[in-house]
Amino acid sequence: MDAMMTMTEKGSGRMKFADFVSRGAICADLAAGSKEDVIRELTASLVRSGAIAEDDLESIVKAIMKREELGSTGIGRGVAVPHTKHPSVDRLVGTVGVSNEGLDFNSLDGEKVQLFFLLISPPDRPGDHLRALENISRQLRDDTFCRFLKQAKTAEDIWQLLEDADNNHFGT
């Protein structure tokens, strides 16, 4: 299938996890038990990794929650992609979190969510946001990748899996 992919515009090549995931913000074993808490936990981890400023935390959490009100970003298969545009970032930043128990996220398929990919994009870069979603959804179609991520015990394990995915060890 790869060979059939053609790029329509300059610089619109495939995005990799390493292009937007803030390594120091990856969360294994999320503690949060509710939608807002998990969004806060993931966003706070981006503050800790230096990807976003502490002063912007509340405003970003609020914006992501507002987006969830339009419809859950729990896209099925135990995966959610909470996200927002925010003027405080000048490039797409994101993190990955794994919940061992899974939590209720009003997912489209009603399943609990175990894997979270949180994205914050600059308001004027819809293409990057689309390409990050493309990367996430393409990789998550692979059952092995999904299963390994859900079983990951440490942030380092998660990063390793993302790197493996970037190097085409999974899926298409």
Partner: peptide, 22 residues
Amino acid sequence: EGVRVDGKSILDVLTLAAEQGT
């Protein structure tokens, strides 16, 4: 562009990364 996906799967539709004008 030659890539065919299942329209009933949100994951599949997202893999198209269809921008404005596509």
